[in-house]
Design a protein around this nucleic acid. Structure first.
Lengths: 214, 214
DNA sequence: GTCTATAGCTTGATAGAC
DNA sequence: GTCTATCAAGCTATAGAC
């Protein structure tokens, strides 16, 4: 019966509550009062441990970013020029799918949070670019090896479309569930992953592969 | 010298200022004070003309939704079972590209606003589904005609990936500009559209086209 | 339809006792 | 490290004069 929320440190209780609430309501939609109340700690402790609200928000984002980046980097580094574009896309996208489905409940909230940040100009540089661009560059360099006839620009555009599909998946808004009248479930990332990899791979080939290198 | 902001009605001035500020900071990140100040009108007029803040937000969203839906519907209705999947995707995605590039400056803000709403659970049903699902259904029905061997579920997943790519494009965060070191410009929707249509068409074929119907 | 003034509440942050 | 108490500022919404 270890590891329940009651036994966590004050910092972790605040981080967990923040993750949940920021994911649902966004940075400005949640007050420190609601966060500390959900965490079961006093209001003043948020400031004591994390400083201003913005710092707390960044701490929430960064907590899982390193773990995700390491898993992606590990998977990408196992591949080389002889790999398929499917393998590359799988290496980049599978780590979050794994953590979201089997890494504990916090990862679902984290995905929703990242999905909101990703399309908000306010956090693009300070969060998205600074946290995730290094691994993005690694992925793109590998794509250039696997599809050597690509125009460099087209690889970036293909990555842009990949990002869009992946991040909308993170959001798990349930819109596709309703639209499809229950045929699709936005929470089942295993199914989505199995469809997303061939979809994106075909897209990459369509706009990046300009035939045999010469 | 007609049609400058100074000559607009109070309602339109408030709507324009709201569109800009909501797009940049989100619903909770902007106060009615900042909106009315940017609009150059008194605080009390926001409530007089639009009621509570939520109503104003919905009025901003709905103002351009009808126009966009009509353009999409018109383009889709010109196509039939003999059309290509490229033509269908073009019909669905081109109207916003056109308006964003040549329909006046408000459409850029509107795109950023929709991009933030789309990944926020709070607005999924009340905005996204209610405003945009009818045309989405029209698009999906046409896809089933054009790719008749598709499993119905796969068409919805392909549409989900299309939505992600399209909406990330609307956001114009500039992240891909920085990542590509200037090779890509997220504001040039004409270029993105030209890449996006073949990318997505290949994806649709990859997961929806199960060979000749029997 | 527009203005001034304000009610009633919530916010982030902190000071100071323990 | 935690608690109580509070400050100054901001918020939405509205009442009432013009």
């Amino acid at each position: 019966m270890a590891n329940t929320e009651n036994e966590l440190s004050t910092q972790d209780r605040i981080l967990n509550a923040s993750e949940n609430l920021f994911a649902e309501f966004g940075f400005d939609g949640v007050s420190l009062r609601k966060i500390t109340q959900a965490a079961g700690v006093e209001l003043a402790l948020a400031n004591y441990h994390f400083g201003p609200k913005t710092n707390l928000f960044l701490a929430v984002v960064r907590r899982r970013a390193d773990e995700l980046n390491e898993a992606r980097t590990r998977a990408l580094c196992e591949l080389d020029a002889s790999s398929s574009i499917e393998q590359l896309i799988d290496a980049f996208t599978r780590p979050f799918t794994e953590k979201s489905m089997r890494g504990g409940p916090g990862w679902k909230s984290y995905g929703r949070l990242i999905a909101q940040i990703a399309n908000s100009p306010r956090w693009t540089e300070v969060v998205m670019a600074s946290q995730f661009d290094p691994v993005a560059r690694l992925f793109i360099d590998k794509v250039k090896l696997v599809l050597p006839s690509s125009a460099e620009r087209d690889v970036y555009w293909a990555f842009h479309f990949l990002l869009g599909a992946m991040i909308t998946t993170f959001a798990e808004t349930g819109r596709i569930d309703q639209l499809s009248e229950g045929r699709c479930r936005s929470s089942d990332l295993d199914v989505i992953h199995a469809k997303m990899v061939p979809f994106l791979a075909a897209g990459f080939r369509a706009i990046c592969d300009n035939g045999p290198t010469r």
